[in-house]
Every structure is written in C-alpha cells, then in structure tokens.
C-alpha cells in the first residue's frame, strides 16, 4: 500500500491524467449510469442557482435576471420587517419540529414492529397497505381528507349520529398542525420504513440466534441488536432531515390550508407562493425568502453533523 502511494506521488501530471482517463474508461459503464444523475443535479439544482442574484435585484421582466438593477439588501430589509414572514418562519420551525418529534421516529418503530411479525402473509399485506398512500399525490390526499373531515364528511356524520356536534376540523387553528402531522404519518411512514427494514434485514441472523440461546427476550433483541444495527442509518437520515428542516411540507400545507389557519399553518414555502403568485409579485423578496431558507438549512445540517460526530462518533460526511 505504502509502495503504491509512493509510486502515485512520483507520477507526473500527464501520467496522472492518463491514469485517471484510463480508470474512467475502464469503468465507463458505471460512469454512464452516473451521468443521468449528474445531469439532473446540474440542470435542476445548480444551473437555476444563477437566479439567487434576484434577492439583491429589482426584477423587471424585460431586463431579465441578469439585466435587472442591483438594489443591495433592500429585499431582505423589507422581508425582515414583514410580520407575515416571521409568522411563517415560526410556523415552519414549529411544524418541522413536530415532524421531527412525531413523524421521524414513526417509520423506525414501524420497521422494528414489522421485523417482529413472523407470518409473511399478514406482514406483506400490512406493508402494502401502509406504503400505498405514498403513491398518492397531496392533491388527491387533501381531497380525501377534506371529504373525510369536511362539514358533511364521514367523521362529522359519525359525530352527529352519536349525538355530538359537528367540528370544523379544517378551519380550526388548534387542530390544523396535528392534522398535518397525522396526515404526513399516514402518507409517508410505510414508505420511509422500507429503508429501515432493509437495514434490519442486513443484520446477521446469527446474532439473534445467539441472543435467544443466551435467554434474551424480544425487547432485549430490539434493544441490543436491532437498534444498534440501524443506528447508523437513523443518524444519517436524522442529519439529512435536520438539513431540510425548513422544508415543512410545501405541497401538503398548500393543499390543506386556508385563510382561517394561515396564522398557524402558513410556512415559508407557502408564504413564498402567496407573495409570488397570489398578488403582484416581487420576485426579489420571494428569492430572499428562499435564500434565507437555504442558508438556515445548511447551517443546521452542518451543526447536526458536528454534534453527531462529537457525541456519536458518526456523521454524514
């Protein structure tokens, strides 16, 4: 190994380039497989970033993004003076926090529970039933929820049939955030559990057998074998989730909220949507919000990575 490194160091730049090209050519089909992903990220993630400059510009349609005049920090100053911005920031953090607290652990628990089911048939049926909502868009799911929870929906009809009074679930500030949490759990938990189930599957079965011989019960096996086996992947997904904490569910909120619950439901993404498309747009302000969101996300992700390495010894990078 040390010899190989020495040889590598002695190579001239031209030799190194040739070696790199040879390596690429040898693995050309792997690189070809990589190409679509690279193109995707280049086209849809990096190229559009030139639009970030709008946060410091007064956009005019005829001059375009690059030609519009610079206005310094004016858009940010305007933004930070807006009460609606702070309200949406607060809602974003609260809803994302609730998601982290309640939605994030649920697929992990689900995967562990699935692992404990021994009969293949019921296990498979449950998996399909729980995974299916993931494939429905929020447009469809929100219609289902509105029909279930609306004034003449099934839930209210049951309440009335049982002698109760109708509840306006969708316009109730106290209920709305919980509605987001439970509907997100319903939609995504089954799908997200797949990752953890795959990880659990990779745990060496002999560990469970040895534990059984040693007298471990099911709880002990979960506690001392399953959990350590998936802890790494849980850490990685946790850091990734922290890194997107400002994404509190744009499509979900947009399809479920209404002016009655803006105070508790309007998140940064829906705020951007409303100031951009529902009235005379100021693209500079919209971009400033997006920029702010991205920076906070990046800082939080790096912080989570740092904390994870410090206390857990493992991180994402």
């Amino acid at each position: 190994m040390a010899q190989a490194r020495t040889v590598g160091l002695r190579m001239t730049p031209a030799q190194r380039r040739r070696r790199l090209l040879k390596n690429i050519w040898d693995s050309r089909y792997m690189y070809l497989l990589l190409l679509p992903g690279v193109l995707f990220f280049a086209m849809f993630r990096y190229v559009p970033m030139y639009g970030i400059q709008l946060a410091w510009k007064e956009f005019t349609a005829n001059l375009g993004v690059t030609g519009s005049p610079w206005v310094g920090w004016e858009k940010f100053r305007f933004l930070f003076a807006e009460a609606d911005f702070w309200n949406s920031l607060r809602n974003t953090l609260v809803i994302a926090g609730m998601q982290l607290l309640f939605v994030f652990p649920f697929p992990i628990i689900l995967a562990i529970l699935f692992n404990e089911v021994r009969q293949a048939g019921p296990k498979r049926v449950m998996q399909i039933v729980l995974t299916f909502p993931h494939f429905l868009s929020w447009v469809i799911l929100s219609s289902i929820i509105a029909n279930l929870l609306g004034n003449n929906g099934m839930v209210n009809n049951i309440i009335v049939a049982m002698g109760g009074e109708k509840v306006n679930f969708l316009m109730n500030k106290a209920v709305f955030r919980w509605l987001l949490i439970f509907s997100l759990m319903w939609k995504e938990s089954g799908w997200n559990a797949i990752l953890y189930m795959a990880t659990i599957t990779s745990i060496d079965p002999s560990l469970y057998e040895a534990a059984t011989i040693d007298g471990a019960n099911r709880w002990h096996k979960v506690r001392y074998i399953t959990w350590p086996g998936i802890a790494t992947i849980v850490t990685a997904t946790f850091i990734l989730r922290i890194g997107s904490i400002m994404d509190a569910g744009y499509m979900q909120v947009l399809n479920l909220y209404n002016p009655a619950v803006y105070e508790v439901g309007d998140i940064l993404d829906t705020y951007i949507y409303r100031i951009t498309f529902e009235k005379a747009p100021d693209y500079g302000v919209s971009t400033a919000v997006g920029m702010f969101k991205g920076v906070v996300n990046a800082v939080l992700m790096l912080t989570a990575e740092f904390v994870s390495r410090k206390f857990n010894g493992e991180g994402l990078f």
Binding site: M171, N172, P259, A260, Y262, E263, E278, K279, A280, D282
Partner: peptide, 20 residues
C-alpha cells in the same frame, strides 16, 4: 402598482376572523 389594491389581504383577514 407596487402594492395592488389589498383585496386579497382584506379577504383573507375576513375569512380568518369569521371562522376563528
């Protein structure tokens, strides 16, 4: 031209207050 006529804001606030 910059602010519009505030009809969306008025309507949203009315809905919020009537319902909540």
């Amino acid at each position: 031209n910059k602010s519009g006529n505030f009809t969306t804001e008025v309507s949203d606030k009315m809905i919020e207050l009537i319902t909540t």
